[in-house]
Design a binder for these strands. Structure first.
Length: 239
DNA sequence: ATGGTCAAACAGGCCT
DNA sequence: AGGCCTGTTTGACCAT
């Protein structure tokens, strides 16, 4: 039985509520900045679409007009009302029937309004949690990318050292090359060089040769095949 | 004027 | 059946 409030009641409530209705914007200053970050997170869309993708929602309604033909005005809650509701929400996020009625009478609101406020508040809370979760994952991801870059640099340095060492060995063996006969086996044409094994490594764009398997499924791996770690750094604006 | 953001309100499906 | 969740619409407000 969650029917629309009769228009008379609604008007009375509206007049009760009306008193500080627009003070929130005028006195609140740039409070909208608090919510500006909400639009930053495509991941939130991914999260939330996961549970509801099979639903089909019908298009809908005209603005509600009461029986007398008047327009139902949307009215903001006053600062005091919001503060009270926030306190209540802080104590308990669910709203059982008795508390709803009590809150409504305390605030001079319709119980339906209180219920709607709690619903919307829970939704905002959830969005904020998702946002925080996303930021945590992102910073973990960035840290891993940086780590990967460092490790790949280390690999490059080690490769250089290795080829220098190989060069020295070649020179030394060239010096007594007469002894090398024709067997050549061990070294052979691939030089027996460990570098060849490096050269055949296929680098995963994210985990490289270090295979951080446990982390992979947490990450977004793009199609683009990055040639080196600096591409990642540039892409993500890290370092 | 227009476009963006936010909260209030609504709609429809799901859950208990 | 009633409440909750999620997505959407609407209106108020602000910045440009």
């Amino acid at each position: 039985m969650t029917k629309a409030i009769p228009s008379q009641v609604e008007e009375e409530l509206a007049s009760l509520v009306n008193f500080g209705m627009y003070s929130q914007r005028t006195e609140g200053g740039p409070f909208f900045l608090v919510f500006a970050a909400y639009s930053l997170f495509p991941v939130i869309i991914v999260f939330s679409s996961g549970s509801g993708e099979t639903r089909t929602r019908r298009r809908r309604r005209k603005p509600k007009a009461d029986g007398a033909g008047g327009e139902a005005k949307k009215r903001r809650l006053s600062d005091a009302q919001v503060e009270f509701l926030e306190m209540s929400f802080g104590k308990e996020r669910k709203l059982e029937s008795g508390r709803k009625v009590h809150l409504a009478s305390e605030l001079g609101l319709d119980p339906k309004q209180v219920a709607v406020w709690f619903q919307n508040r829970r939704a905002r809370h959830k969005n904020k949690q998702l946002e925080e979760e996303y930021l945590k994952l992102k910073s973990a991801h960035d840290a891993i990318i940086v780590e990967k870059c460092h490790l790949e640099n280390e690999v490059l340095k080690l490769k250089e050292k290795l080829s220098e060492a190989e060069e020295s060995i070649r020179k030394l063996s060239g010096a007594d090359g007469a002894c090398d006969g024709g067997s050549g086996g061990g070294g052979g044409e691939n030089g027996g060089s460990p570098t060849s094994s490096f050269s055949t490594v296929t680098y995963h764009p994210l985990v490289g040769e270090f295979g951080m398997d446990g982390e992979v499924d947490l990450m977004y791996i793009p199609e683009y095949n990055f040639s080196n770690c600096m591409d990642w750094v540039n892409l993500y604006g890290i370092l």
